[in-house]
Amino acid sequence: MTEQKITLSVNGQSYTRMIEPRLLLSDFLRQEIGLTGTHVGCEHGVCGACTVVLDGRSARSCLTLAIQAEGTEIETIEGLGNVDKLGRVQEAFRQHHGLQCGFCTPGFIMAITDMLRHHPLETDDQIREALSGNICRCTGYEHIVNAVRELAKERGPLK
């Protein structure tokens, strides 16, 4: 298949690669540039494990072709913090035990990063609704809800 050149920014760093037009963004991130923190859980856009932030809004990287991301700015889990210094959402997940096996966790954290920027998250119902696009099979969600409640409170009302 004819390869095409794309340039995009991931976590503030620019990448240029020759890719097949059919390459999924999730495969691009994981295989082309080695950022394996973005996980693939279903490949049909339901589970949300592959969620990244694309030009400021959360997106399913398994339903996005890499070539569609040409010229965009992408944030992934690796851009939010590191083992020495967790990002704020990551820290809240740790404090509230919002993860067990950790596989869905990057997708949740990226979705929540978006939600905190754009959604009121003032009630538990709103928080659960905001989280309902991501599947976690381990936690039963309660500890994740607790983490988001704290983050939303800390953020205050949306401006």
């Binding site: 394996t36 690796e78 590191n82 967790l86 096996c101 950790g102 990057p106």
Partner: peptide
């Protein structure tokens, strides 16, 4: 006790089989 395994999972540097190439 906060889990010692968490930091790697939270920052995307856990190592699942499909992460190995």
């Amino acid at each position: 006790v906060k889990r010692t395994e968490d930091p790697r999972f939270l920052t995307g540097v856990g190592r699942y089989v499909d992460d190995m190439s």
